[in-house]
Amino acid sequence: MVRKLALGLVACALVAGCKSKQTQSNENIETAPTGGQSTAIDSSPLSFDPMGSDSGKISGLVTVHFGYDKASLDSSAKKDIAANADWMKKNPGVKVQIEGHCDNRGTIEYNVALGERRANAVKSYMVSLGVAADRLSTISYGKEKPLDTADNEAAWAKNRRANFVPAQ
């Protein structure tokens, strides 16, 4: 009985493994042009900074820092966001992605959710200050892209942030 069951499981695994997979590369996919414009998909790779990204990627925007386990904006954060909103208004062609980050304490799932709340809090405040929402996108990296990998309060404070990078 056990032998038949094991044999049946092996047969199922072989059938599942042999099922053909249809893949398509999107490198040179091009749809029919509309209005004389090409709609080819840009296949250039996105850049990745293994040490994390920070506001230095866009001169004029500053990183917003948060307290431990907080996504609320204190007066210092609001001041930084107001300066960033003013910069965005003076540079109307720029779109940015707001990255939410956390320190390394807590679970991956918890920190991704907290990073998302941080990024969304910054975006909401910028929109309330007059920046168009379609110029801002958000992403959370949780604790996956620390600026400082040390295990102390100074490092954790650096990593609890929302920063700005060019939108791709």
Rank of each mutant, 00 (worst) to 15 (best):
D74M: 06
S75I: 07
S76G: 15
A77M: 04
K78G: 09
D80H: 06
I81H: 02
A82W: 07
D86W: 01
W87D: 04
M88A: 08
N91R: 01
P92E: 06
G93D: 12
G93Y: 03
G93E: 12
V94I: 09
K95S: 14
V96A: 03
Q97T: 14
H101K: 10
H101M: 13
C102R: 02
N104T: 15
V112A: 08
A113I: 11
L114N: 02
L114T: 05
G115E: 09
R117G: 02
A121F: 03
S124E: 08
Y125A: 07
M126W: 00
V127E: 00
V127G: 03
S128G: 15
G130V: 05
A132W: 08
D134F: 10
D134N: 15
L136K: 01
I139L: 11
S140V: 06
S140N: 02
Y141S: 05
Y141Q: 04
Y141E: 00
G142W: 04
G142H: 07
E144V: 11
E144K: 12
K145D: 13
K145Q: 13
P146R: 03
A150D: 13
A150C: 07
A154C: 06
W156R: 10
W156Y: 14
W156N: 08
A157H: 06
R160E: 10
R161T: 06
R161F: 03
A162D: 01
A162R: 03
